[in-house]
Amino acid sequence: MSSRDTDWDGVRLHVVTGKGGTGKTTVAAALALALAAGGRKVLLVEVEGRQGIAQVFDLPPLPYEERKIAVAPGGGDVYALAIDPEEAMLEYLEMFYGLKRMGKALTRMGVVDFATTIAPGLRDVLVTGKTSEAVRRRDRSGRRVYDAIVMDAPPTGRITRFLNVTQEVAGLARVGPVKNHADLVRGVVASPETAVHFVTLLEEMPVQETLDGVAELHAAGLPVGGVFINMVRPVGLPKPVLDAAVKNRFDHAELALGLKAAGLAGGPADASAIAQALAEEVLDHAHRTRLEKRERASLAKAGTPRYELPLLADGADLAGLYELAESIRAQGAA
């Protein structure tokens, strides 16, 4: 057990959401590694059947079964589970009604199609229900089986509806077993033991969606966690240089001299041509930096802790995951 203070001490269910393309699954995986570091046991769950976790960890497709997929720095374990609504439904029937033998008949009858087609809320209740079960699960000696659960959740646009299970099944079931189950799930998801984290990029659309998502969660009484700003590029140039570039006062001549000094240019004309091309990149970078500053300021309005994760030069491979996990720990998010 780690004795360090982190921003989310006491949180046992970390729900990770984000707009498509922001790297939600990668961040969820890195967060699981970070939380497991130093000898803890963490379960990483996937709920949308995309097998994104298997891809991130470079593994064959995951079954509906908790299995160890990675060892964290300092000896912790990350387990993974791809929740399949069909299997979750059969398990639910067995657990609460002893109806396991019914499974085949139910599958044959299209009960799963039923659950996922006509009863949208039911699917989400099954998936969040399975996750909540893992959060609450204890071993024989009464200890929690997992120190933390990380959920690679649906995208920002759907997250509130997904987690707001009681609301969602309201039209489906005002009373009865589904309603009871939903209430139980709500008890876990809306508790201080849960935090919903957002993954975003420093771009307009994902930032706007993040702010909208935070507001929606607040309105629904669900616990907002932190904002993970992903794929942050290093600031390459000092501010005065960027300011000059935006004002069209970038020092081409100085750059050309530098290029010549570095032996990159044949003659003055050549140096000037390369400097011209590089100056375009500088201007582009300057515009981007300004936009990023604006988006950072927008995100600050959400009033939640923010963490910055670097853009990985080689993409999100396994080594990159550990790098992100380290960054998450260094910033106190885990």
């Binding site: 390459g236 240089v241 100085e254 570095a262």
Partner: peptide, 22 residues
């Protein structure tokens, strides 16, 4: 320790080329 500006711009360019290559 010379041409700080050029060095920084070249670093920026290298990053961009790496991204383009990926």
């Amino acid at each position: 320790g010379e041409h700080e500006l050029a060095a920084a711009v070249l670093r920026l360019h290298a990053g961009r080329m790496q991204l383009a290559a990926r």
